[in-house]
Design a protein around this nucleic acid. Structure first.
Length: 107
DNA sequence: GGCCTGACTTTAG
DNA sequence: GCTAAAGCCAGGC
């Protein structure tokens, strides 16, 4: 098992299609540790490659935008997501319509 | 090499 | 519905 939790997180995060978003808990669970949502946030915050890891497609458990220490912060993040086609609800993401399901890839 | 912090989530009261 | 506490991983000092 060369795939560490970290690698799995990166893999899943990178697998998020355009116009969809995933939650930290979801990624953590897919990575093998449903309780390691914090670690996911860490990896997102310290993501080595923004091109490989669309951290802006990662939101809170209820679709709330969180984190993103980049310029513009959550505002820019929201804009990027909107541009990609993610459905927004006021300041949160409509997980009901834009939540990323890993099973969708396998289907 | 040990301790603390951090873009979180979930369960219990 | 809100507050409090525990659990995970990685990085910095």
């Amino acid at each position: 098992m060369n795939r560490s939790f970290r690698d799995k997180v990166y893999e899943v995060t990178h697998a998020i299609p355009k116009g969809k978003v995933a939650t930290y808990g979801q990624i953590a669970k897919l990575a093998g540790n449903p309780k390691a949502a914090r670690a996911v946030g860490l990896l997102m915050a310290k993501n080595p490659d923004l091109s490989t890891i669309p951290c802006h497609r990662v939101v809170g458990s209820d679709g709330s935008l969180t984190g993103y220490s980049g310029e513009g912060g959550l505002i820019k993040k929201k804009k990027m997501l909107e541009k990609e086609g993610v459905i927004f609800n006021e300041k949160k993401v409509s997980l009901a319509k834009s939540k990323f399901d890993y099973q969708s890839l396998l289907d």
